[in-house]
Simulated assay, not measured.
Amino acid sequence: MDKLRRIEALFARPGSEGERVAAERARERIQARLAQLASEEPPVEFRFSLADQWSRHLFVALMRRYGITPYRYRGQRRTTVMARLSRSFVNETLWPEFLELQQTLTAYFDTLTDRVIEQALEVKAGEAEERPPAPQLEPVDHQLDIAALGGEFGRS
Rank of each mutant, 00 (worst) to 15 (best):
R65T: 00
T69F: 02
W95T: 06
D52A: 10
L10S: 07
L58M: 07
S16F: 01
E17Q: 12
S55H: 08
S49F: 06
A32V: 02
E138D: 10
G154N: 01
Q136Y: 11
F98M: 04
A32W: 08
T80Y: 12
E152I: 02
S88L: 06
T80D: 08
R72T: 03
V116T: 09
G67K: 07
F59N: 03
A35W: 06
D114C: 14
T93G: 01
E100G: 14
F46L: 15
V140E: 10
P133D: 04
Q102T: 07
G151N: 04
E138K: 14
Q102P: 01
P43H: 07
H142R: 12
Q31Y: 05
R29T: 12
Q53H: 13
E138H: 12
V123W: 02
Q102Y: 15
K3P: 01
R13Q: 10
R20C: 09
E100V: 14
E45R: 12
I117D: 04
L4A: 12
I7H: 08
D110N: 15
Q143R: 15
L101Q: 14
A125W: 03
D145L: 00
L4T: 11
R87T: 11
F89L: 14
S86H: 04
A125H: 08
R155F: 08
I117H: 05
L58N: 02
T79H: 03
P139T: 07
P42G: 06
F59E: 03
R115P: 01
E41D: 06
G15K: 14
E129A: 10
Y108P: 03
L121K: 10
D145C: 04
R72Y: 00
F11N: 07
T93S: 10
I30P: 07
G154H: 01
W54P: 00
A148D: 04
V90Q: 01
S55I: 00
G154I: 03
T111P: 00
R27S: 09
T106P: 00
K124A: 13
R27I: 12
Q76C: 02
A148G: 06
D52Q: 06
L37W: 15
E127G: 05
L4D: 03
Q143D: 12
M82C: 13
E129C: 00
S86F: 05
R6V: 02
Q31M: 15
A22Y: 02
L99Y: 06
H57V: 06
R29F: 10
E40A: 13
P70F: 01
Y73I: 08
Q103M: 12
P14G: 14
V116A: 09
E130K: 10
K124Q: 14
G154A: 08
E28C: 05
Q76H: 11
R5Q: 12
A22N: 05
Q103T: 14
T80N: 05
Q143I: 05
I7F: 11
W54C: 00
G151H: 02
L101E: 09
P14Q: 02
L58Y: 04
Y66G: 05
G18N: 12
S156P: 15
E97Y: 00
P70K: 02
M1C: 05
L37I: 04
T69E: 14
L94P: 05
V81G: 01
T69L: 09
A22D: 09
E17N: 08
A26L: 14
E122H: 12
V60T: 11
F153Y: 04
A148N: 03
Q102L: 14
Q143L: 10
A35G: 08
E138Y: 10
